[in-house]
Write a protein that binds this DNA or RNA. Sequence first.
RNA 1: GCCCCCAUCGUCUAGGGGACCAGGACGUAGCCCUUUCAAGGCUAAGACGGGGGUUCGAAUCCCCCUGGGGGCACCA
Length: 495
Amino acid sequence: MDSNKPARMRFAPSPTGRFHIGSARTALYTYLYARKTGGQFIIRIEDTDQKRFDPAAEDELFESLRWLGLAWDEGPDVGGPSGPYRQSERMAIYQRYASDLVESGHAYYCFCSPERLAEVRKLQQQRKEPPRYVGHCRRLNPAEAADRAAAGEKHVVRFRTSREGRTTAVDLLRGPIEVENSTIDDYILVKSSGMPVYHLAAMVDDHLMGITHVTRGSEWLPTFPLHVMIYEAFGWDQPVWVHLSVLLNPSGKGKLSKRDSSASGGGAHAIFTLDLRELGYLPEAVVNWVSLMGWSFDDHTEFFTMPDLIQAFSLEKLNPSPAAVNFSKLDHFNGLHIRNLAPEDLTKRLLPFFETAGIEISTADLEPVTPLIQKRIRTLDEAVDMAGFFFRPFTTPPVDELIGKGMTAAESAAAARRAAEVVRAHPALEHEPLENALRQLADELGLKAGQLFGILRGAVTGQRVSPPLIETMEILGIDVVLERIENAAKVLENR
RNA sequence: GCCCCCAUCGUCUAGGGGACCAGGACGUAGCCCUUUCAAGGCUAAGACGGGGGUUCGAAUCCCCCUGGGGGCACCA
């Protein structure tokens, strides 16, 4: 397939709920291919269901896209040549195309009530028949039906599917999908409220907006032939159809849902894009991670930045089979991308997490600390646990936390006293000389380096696990370090 | 129940008839490095769902079964 012609593509969410990683993936793939081919990435809001519309969802959607770095060329906020980009503002257009279909005989007015239809459906289910419209409105005299509709009788517009023959719909990833026309229902195209449903609105918009490649979820596969029929009824050329596989829960059982998402894969995880931001994930990592769920490049490359992805991406390598999300892999990618960041950049991104933890510090405060923790954290919020002691009021830990491994309190106290002297002798806290001197001291005391360092670590950081000791001391400064060691010695002596 | 899609290690995948006693990544286990924790390096365990074909030869092609997923709305 040629990837040279600029592709005009759209991400068309319906703002009815929170923005999850499945939507993020669809948007990403759409974005990547549009960018790769030098085409356009368009946002269209599918808000024809007034009952489910949620303005907050729309805000979150844009915020998520921005956070991920998926900039759009056309959309409801920025406009563009194919506007409006909100379906609720395109009613007249759908109205017109629906009438065209009725006039050409491809659609008809149906006056059946929802209640009647529900009854029929129930009956069909009891008889184990496929639920479908069998009503007589299909056979109504078009002129009479038009009169009734014009007179204001409540009605919907239904598509008139052929009851014979077969329809072939071609999906880029799956090839031709052939179905018996008789298995396709006479779908409602326009509701009695005058609102179009997806089947009409999306087809009309994709055509009018010049969409060349349609990317959408595989939940549309069952109605895919219907969509092809609609295109044919209008006499339009079809776009390239690409149905993306669904994302499954970590267990691999069932479509990704909020319920099971935190069950496996380690720590606290979320399926909503913005929650991931809160949990300390980098957008770079989320993009990298999500890109690999259903797509691959070759047999060894997995680390990708956005520019890499744009270059490497191709629709053909998309995988039609469902993929289970793997949160531990997100952690892995997050670690990789954290390490890939320039230290100044990481510092900037870390700051908000300290603030959330109630630690008010400046860039200058954090800057020296960042290099010490960059290799040690997998999520941004871990930085607070790891390095919060640098900025929080300090209290000397209890004796038990200060005693060296396999040592008594008295021995530990003595070692701390001697270490204090060594530190005092190195007021600049230069790494090499200080470390050597401390190692020598350990030797003299008949201790392993780890035992001595352990005592000092507890004394200086108040933690069992911390960034490297000497570097930590350098940042803390000689006075603070000596004071803490002495306090620790006192605690140990008072045992 | 009906329709559609999918099927390689626990998970994400490479593989598109011989280069595969199936390669990589995450996770897991062990070792090395090491002042803790990481990072890094090395090693190990771990898969072609089953049955028929086609072929000299099948993870790769076809059929059936099984399993999984999705859909059957005046929702998208």
